[in-house]
Design a protein around this nucleic acid. Structure first.
Lengths: 131, 131
DNA sequence: GTAGAACCTGACACTGACGTCAGAGGTAGA
DNA sequence: TCTACCTCTGACGTCAGTGTCAGGTTCTAC
């Protein structure tokens, strides 16, 4: 599989795949002429990388975590586990924050929709949202 | 309340408060000599702004939403409601993704911890994570 | 009134993941 | 072998929120 194929099959850009390699997160074989080649496993790996990026992990944090995906025994240093636990905790907090914000948005939508239906122009401001 | 007070009481930086004003998200009175002055309501507003920023809304999206916080009746145009509904849906998806990633991290942590306890060097790679 | 802290505007720097461009070479079907 | 497309490296651009600096004004406590 060449880089364009991998990009298409993972929904990423060629640029991103080169960037991941540059960060040490993705490896490739090279043909005699220098073109990158990937096997099928690369697809799952790229999807995992994207998932971790989407979760807000940085390249360096992902680089810390990935060896644990590849060889959990060899890579399970205390620091690596600590990094993963920190990220786990951070994600928990972030989920709580996002749920809270989502609920507030739902409240706003309901308020705005009600106003639209009633066509009333004398409505109270939606106060105390961030309480 | 001057800008430094507001920054301290909301845990933000003075720079950010000026930026929010620049983006039309926060207003201030000015003294005769041009210094910004805020009332107590600004604290809740800044906290809400930070919450929306943390949820990944951009300045322009927040600028679309905020009038609805202030005057839900006057601001409840169809487009505004549509923007809020899009963000609401996006947050829902993002929460699901984050929960999934968090659970995968928990799995990795468990696997790594088990390896650390057993001290076994012959472990299967943690495959099929991004399935 | 003076020192020092806080404030003002304006501008440039930074971060990090990625877009985009240039110039060159590789690949594959007709 | 021609053509069209793909890939290579290297470099610079982008975005958005914020840090930081410069040069100046304002406030406050002594």
């Amino acid at each position: 599989m060449r880089i364009g194929d991998l990009a298409r099959r993972t929904g990423t850009s060629v640029r991103s795949l080169r960037y991941y390699e540059e960060q040490g997160l993705l490896t490739s074989e090279r043909t005699g002429t220098g073109q990158r080649t990937y096997d099928e496993d690369a697809i799952a790996r790229v999807r995992l990388l994207r998932q971790l990026y989407n979760a807000g992990l940085s390249s360096t944090t992902i680089a810390t975590v990935m060896p644990c995906v590849d060889h959990p025994s060899a890579a399970s240093t205390r620091e690596t586990i600590a990094v993963m636990e920190r990220e786990h905790a951070r994600l928990g907090e972030q989920v709580a924050d996002l749920v809270s914000t989502r609920d507030q948005l739902a409240y706003l939508i309901a308020a705005a929709s009600a106003c639209g239906e009633v066509q009333a122009d004398e409505r109270e401001p939606v106060g105390a949202l961030a309480s």
